[in-house]
Amino acid sequence: MSYTAIVDYGVGNLKSVANAMQFLGMRTLITGDAAGLERADSIILPGVGAFPDAAERLRGAGLDRVLAEQSEKKPILGICLGMQLLFDLGEEGRTCKGLGLVHGRVRKIDTEYKLPHIGWNSLTFQNGAPIFRGLEDGAYVYFVHSFCGVAADEKNVTARTDYGASVVAAVRSGNVYGCQFHPEKSGEPGLQILKNFGELNR
Rank of each mutant, 00 (worst) to 15 (best):
Y3D: 11
A5T: 06
A5E: 03
A5G: 10
V7A: 14
D8L: 00
D8N: 02
D8W: 04
Y9I: 06
K15C: 09
K15H: 15
L24A: 09
M26H: 15
R27V: 05
R27I: 07
T28N: 08
L29S: 15
D33V: 11
A35C: 06
G36T: 05
L37P: 02
R39V: 09
A40E: 03
D41N: 11
L45H: 05
G47Y: 05
G47L: 09
V48Y: 11
D53Q: 14
A54E: 10
R57Y: 05
R57V: 10
R59P: 12
G60E: 01
A61R: 07
L63G: 11
L63E: 08
A68G: 08
Q70M: 05
Q70Y: 07
S71L: 07
K74I: 06
I76C: 10
L77T: 01
L77R: 09
G78L: 04
C80V: 14
C80F: 09
Q84E: 14
L85A: 12
D88A: 12
G90H: 08
E92Y: 13
E92V: 11
G93P: 04
C96G: 13
C96Y: 13
L99G: 12
G100R: 01
G100Y: 09
G100K: 00
L101E: 14
V106I: 08
V106L: 00
K108V: 12
K114F: 03
P116Q: 00
H117I: 09
I118K: 08
G119T: 08
N121C: 00
S122L: 02
T124E: 06
T124N: 06
T124G: 03
F125Y: 01
A129S: 15
P130N: 10
R133H: 13
R133A: 15
G134K: 01
L135I: 01
A139I: 01
Y142P: 05
V144Y: 06
V144H: 00
H145G: 13
H145V: 11
S146I: 02
C148D: 11
G149I: 00
V150W: 01
E154H: 10
T158A: 06
A159P: 10
T161I: 05
D162V: 03
D162W: 03
Y163A: 02
G164N: 03
G164L: 08
A165E: 02
R172N: 02
S173N: 07
N175C: 00
G178Y: 07
G178L: 02
C179I: 00
C179D: 12
Q180F: 02
Q180G: 06
F181L: 04
H182P: 08
G187H: 12
E188A: 15
Q192L: 05
I193N: 02
I193L: 01
I193G: 02
L194N: 10
N196K: 02
F197H: 09
F197V: 01
F197N: 04
G198N: 03
L200S: 02
L200D: 09
N201P: 06
N201L: 01
R202W: 11
